[in-house]
Simulated scan of single mutants.
Amino acid sequence: MKILVTGASGFIGGRFARYALERGFDVRVTARRGEALEPLALRGAQCMAADLADADGVRALCSDVDTVVHCAGAVGFWGRRQDFLQANVQLTENVVEACLKQKVRRLVYLSSPSVYFDGRSRLGVREDQVPRRFANTYAQTKYLAEQKVFGAQEFGLEVIALRPRMVTGAGDRSIFPRLLRLQEKRRLAIVGNGLNRVDFTSMANLNQALLRSVQVGDEALGQVYNISNGQPVPIWDAINYVMRQMQLPQVRRYRSFGLTYGMAMLNEAACLVWPGRPEPTLSRLGVQVLNKDFTLDIARARHYLGYEPQVSLWAALDEFCAWWKAGHMYQAR
């Protein structure tokens, strides 16, 4: 079986490509910057630098491929709406069209549980509990991209989408690196009482879910699946675990949600008028994430994908900390 992984220069795409290679799959990888794929080329991947905005180029990528694992896209909350539409919707349309024209058998789409988040505490969220309004453009465009993927079923393409929650492990450049930088400047504080529980996903567990999505039978097709470790933890326990591992002071200061949310509003307003509109270091979304309960129901993935988390959050955090201490050179080894 030949697998094409898009977004392979990123954390999730790169880690899954490596995982598939280690299990003997024929893997083709793509990213805009070809040099970012060199570590995977050394491991035996076929590397093709490409811009997914080029429909003809995407069709070439999908030539002689059995399955596409589509991990590329824009992540975050800050930026122009048209950029998110381009990166998450238009590029996915190009991938879907290429899969159909090149007779690719299956498309696995990496979506996001951000589609559920509405700023309130939510526990055990099921796949069908999508709010009427989305919290931001990122969430909206990920959901729109899902609809493009599932719309291809009627033309014979086998499709699956995954919504993994707060993925971490070696190579994570999003969640804990930002928190570490804030704590190094002593700018991190517990928002609220610090007892809110959230889900994380070990990258090792997500690899299992992605591979199951590639291999699973017809009964699992045409659905979206929540993915997590299935064991919610207080978010500040996880954050302070990383701080201890990195020999940084524990986060012990408390700030009220209302005060912190107000500060985030002012920070965002300042960034909107600042030249270049830089991303705010403190945002309303970030404050909500650090203050609200947010967990997923993964029963559907367990039943249809045979997904069963094997690697604990603490093992994933140990992996991340070892990688970070080593100078972020995990992928180059």
Score class of each variant (00 low, 15 high):
residue 41 A to N: 06
residue 85 L to R: 04
residue 78 W to Y: 02
residue 110 L to C: 10
residue 303 H to V: 06
residue 291 N to C: 05
residue 207 N to M: 05
residue 8 A to R: 11
residue 189 A to M: 12
residue 226 N to E: 12
residue 265 M to T: 05
residue 169 G to I: 12
residue 111 S to M: 04
residue 54 D to L: 12
residue 161 A to T: 13
residue 62 C to W: 08
residue 271 C to W: 02
residue 25 F to T: 03
residue 167 V to G: 07
residue 232 P to A: 10
residue 119 G to E: 00
residue 215 Q to G: 03
residue 57 G to L: 11
residue 294 F to T: 00
residue 74 A to P: 00
residue 208 Q to S: 07
residue 4 L to Q: 04
residue 169 G to Q: 06
residue 40 L to E: 05
residue 292 K to P: 01
residue 272 L to V: 14
residue 122 R to F: 02
residue 83 D to Y: 01
residue 20 A to W: 03
residue 242 V to M: 06
residue 179 L to I: 15
residue 162 L to T: 13
residue 119 G to A: 01
residue 126 R to A: 05
residue 132 R to M: 09
residue 12 I to C: 02
residue 14 G to S: 10
residue 51 D to N: 15
residue 117 F to W: 06
residue 181 R to W: 11
residue 271 C to H: 04
residue 137 T to Y: 05
residue 290 L to K: 00
residue 114 S to N: 15
residue 59 R to Y: 09
residue 190 I to E: 00
residue 84 F to I: 00
residue 322 A to M: 09
residue 206 L to C: 11
residue 249 P to T: 05
residue 287 V to T: 09
residue 252 R to G: 13
residue 285 L to G: 00
residue 117 F to K: 01
residue 227 I to Y: 04
residue 177 P to Q: 12
residue 61 L to N: 05
residue 41 A to W: 08
residue 33 R to V: 12
residue 125 V to T: 14
residue 192 G to Y: 03
residue 109 Y to C: 06
residue 102 Q to V: 13
